[in-house]
Design a protein around this nucleic acid. Sequence first.
DNA 1: TTGACATGTTATCAGTCGATTACTACAGTC
DNA 2: GACTGTAGTAATCGACTGATAACATGTCAA
Lengths: 202, 202
Amino acid sequence: MTVEEATTAPRMKAADRRELILEAATAVFGAKSYVGTTTDEVARAAGVSQPYVVRLFGTKSKLYIAVIERAYERILGEFTRVLPGPPEERMKRMGAAYAGLLVERGMLPVIANSTALGGDPEIGPVARAGFNSIWRFVRDEAGFTKVETRDFMANGMLINAIVGLRLVGAYGTEQSVTEVLNACFPDAVGVRELMPEAGEPW
Amino acid sequence: MTVEEATTAPRMKAADRRELILEAATAVFGAKSYVGTTTDEVARAAGVSQPYVVRLFGTKSKLYIAVIERAYERILGEFTRVLPGPPEERMKRMGAAYAGLLVERGMLPVIANSTALGGDPEIGPVARAGFNSIWRFVRDEAGFTKVETRDFMANGMLINAIVGLRLVGAYGTEQSVTEVLNACFPDAVGVRELMPEAGEPW
DNA sequence: TTGACATGTTATCAGTCGATTACTACAGTC
DNA sequence: GACTGTAGTAATCGACTGATAACATGTCAA
């Protein structure tokens, strides 16, 4: 288990426990995808029993939906935070804000994985809604042009792929990875250290 | 089952059966992701028994690896095919070639899903190798600049996300989907009809 | 034609996972 | 200081899944 493991579960308000579980679930779902993650792994990562996770969220899919919604809200929050300031650097700030979410374990991988679940009758609508909320924000709130919006979103998807592929953990050890990274993060220096390792986190 | 189902399995050369299973597996894996797909579903889609699928490929992960490798080879093949011609339209041709692979069921979804499996010790290296092979081709064979290469790959990832989210099947039924599509496929008309439906394919 | 290998199936198992049930213990309050 | 609702666990179950074993049938060279 790569995700940190809580030791015990002393009494706590249900709302706080919910948030704690959501954070743990984000890390685990992000590392192992939706189907690949068991409710028991989430429970152990959060330091509670497996049945309690199920009882708090109803079903595994409802838990995952809560995780997705929280992740998209988090991204929108970051974008909103860096919105003020010189418009000509706005895209750069927002891109940095997105890449900065790499420090929050599972956040970007969860987003990335959610874009593959459109076919699920329960999760699909939520994933689409999240993606659309980002698109709309970039378009309307940030005021990007059509092409800028598309390119911004496209680069976000590329970052997702790089994270998901663990291209950074393999930095220097596999061919042409260097090129990929230099092309995508020409000036963002500290980003590489924030990425998950290639070996274990599965 | 959304994927077409063969009726029986008359005698066939193992190599041909392998290819037939790979094609069926691409469709199923593409629709339901790696972990979400059972070897039995692949078997039924290919019209053979589940144990035979396992025996032909050894394990489920080896089958999936074969599917990924085949998919990346297919993409490289298409890119190679459209390479000759006026260089100034090269990127457009390659983009169209990529989008054209939408007709081959599961091909693009499999690629998209593979970019989330970098953490798997078996599949990760194969997924990275495939991604790198595309990157290298675009960079070296097609002769794109660094920025062009990144943008081309990024747009590919965006297409993957759009397909994975079933944004096209939801065309007109959910908010802002129209914007997304118009921004991404300004002139590619027939593409929308080629995309999987939003409802069932899960 | 016969034997030997290749193609394929049926039956089955051991492990896993989400969910349910029944139970325990703590905290506030009247 | 009992009463009541909330927080949490242990035990367990039915369904599923990848893999194995044993068996059946077709094909082809000598």
